[in-house]
Write a protein that binds this DNA or RNA. Structure first.
Length: 432
DNA sequence: TCATATT
């Protein structure tokens, strides 16, 4: 109630688009007017930070039909850059929209020798099949599952309800599994989860106990990890019953088994390293960074170094910045996650060649000796969570940024040398 | 290699 209208009309045909590279100062009416030049648009919703209500630089656009939505996409995506934005508008179907519109089903528990023709014969009883694809391995052998698209949602639903858990293909002792196909987002989530579970199999052994790795049983998988994925959707969310075992088996066929732990999971172990040699540091450990605690003082300060702020603590202490205690990056609850705080002009740094294992916090720690760190952000791959090895650090004063550059640019961290420079500024300065 | 973000 307090927020006004709860949600907009979402008829079956209307299509939601996600739009990125929207300047934060633009209003919904302005955006609506702009998009209406290209397509019928029912509504624009700016996506705002939950806490601050400030625009996150993107919005949703609701179009009455797929045709209209496509017009907006074709006219705007990568086609025009709004004043203040650094790159062209990104206009695409919002997460889950395409899947919703495609009425795409997953079919599991198919006997391996069943072909498209037989599946088609069964499923065409319930509607017009627009697309059907059996998943196959390298030798064209069926993986026992398929994707199928119907013309309408009603058809898909009818097939789902009639077949899932009920219909057995000829010669099979188990019924088919039919469910809505995962959305792209769900797949990404699963990928990320898998990547993370693999990472957690080699838990920071670099810093403290490299030998621990060799002590783990070969087949060790953390208990919470289970199969490394979850049954899609979660049973509680499904509007129909799916026998749990079938669901798991169906996906078991699709998912590679957890690998035996080997050097493939240890990029830092050379090909000749085996667990029996773990007590010898691999060459790549030499420059490797011992996680957070070791980072308090990335460099030996030149004796004559002028500290940007008066510091009582000696360079060897753990809190060099005690004189400029910074709330943004280190202490307390305001962790500055998500919304990036930008410092004044000249106080924002772009950093490249950040060690892979660094996260926001490690980056902040590395740069806080030079001033008040307003924000520190390491960019990570959306799907895998892996660091892209670059990021940003913002100070509250350009002088701090300069001293960070002079001290940290070229500083060897891990295998590579940091590149530290002022962040590019896309904003056009005030015209006077 | 420069803030890509899904109410």
């Amino acid at each position: 109630m307090a927020e006004g209208k709860e949600e907009s009309k979402s008829s079956e045909e209307s299509v939601k688009l996600f739009v990125g590279q929207v300047p934060k100062h633009m209003t919904e009416p302005e955006l609506l007017a702009m998009f209406q030049e290209f397509a019928l648009v029912d509504e624009v919703n700016i996506i705002k930070d939950k806490a601050t209500r400030v625009s996150r630089g993107c919005c949703f656009v609701i179009c009455p039909s797929r045709e209209e939505a496509d017009k907006a996409v074709n006219a705007c995506h990568n086609k025009k850059t709004l004043p203040g934005a650094s790159s062209p508008l990104q206009v695409k179907y919002a997460d889950g929209e395409l899947e919703r519109l495609e009425h795409k089903l997953f079919i599991g528990m198919l006997p391996k020798n069943v072909s498209e023709v037989e599946i088609s014969a069964l499923f065409s009883q319930y509607g017009t099949i627009k697309d059907l694809q059996v998943l196959r391995g390298s030798q064209q052998t069926s993986k026992g599952c398929a994707f199928l698209k119907y013309e309408t949602k009603d058809q898909a639903l009818a097939a789902l309800e009639a077949i899932n858990g009920k219909h057995k293909m000829e010669g099979s002792s188990v019924p088919l599994v039919v469910k809505w196909a995962d959305t792209e987002k769900e797949r990404q989530a699963r990928r990320a989860q898998k990547a993370q579970s693999q990472a957690s199999n080699v838990p920071h052994s670099d810093s403290q106990h490299p030998s621990l790795f060799g002590a783990l049983p070969m087949g060790y998988v953390p208990p919470y990890n289970g199969y490394g994925y979850q049954a899609p959707g979660g049973y509680g969310l499904m509007p129909y019953r799916m026998p749990p075992m079938q669901s798991q088996h169906g996906f078991h066929n699709m998912m590679p088994h957890m690998n035996h732990q080997g050097n493939a999971l240890r990029p830092d172990l050379g090909p000749n390293m085996n667990p029996r040699n773990y007590h010898v540091a691999p060459a790549s450990y030499v420059g490797s960074y011992p996680a957070v605690t070791g980072l308090q003082h990335p460099m030996a300060y030149p004796t004559g170094m002028i500290s940007p702020r008066p510091m009582n603590a000696s360079p060897g202490s753990v809190s060099p910045a005690s004189g400029n205690n910074n709330t943004a990056a280190s202490s307390g609850g305001s962790k500055n996650s998500g919304g990036q705080v930008e410092g004044p002009p000249g106080a924002n740094l772009f950093i490249y060649h950040i060690p892979q294992e660094f996260g926001d916090e490690e980056l902040a720690n590395a740069f806080q000796p030079f001033g008040m760190v307003l924000s520190a952000k390491v960019f990570v791959d959306k799907a895998t969570g892996v660091s892209k090895c670059f990021g940003f650090v913002s100070y509250d004063s350009p002088e701090d940024a300069q001293s960070a550059i002079s001290m940290m640019n070229g500083f060897q961290l891990g295998g590579k040398k940091l590149k530290v420079q002022l962040k590019r500024d896309n904003k056009q300065g005030k015209p006077y």
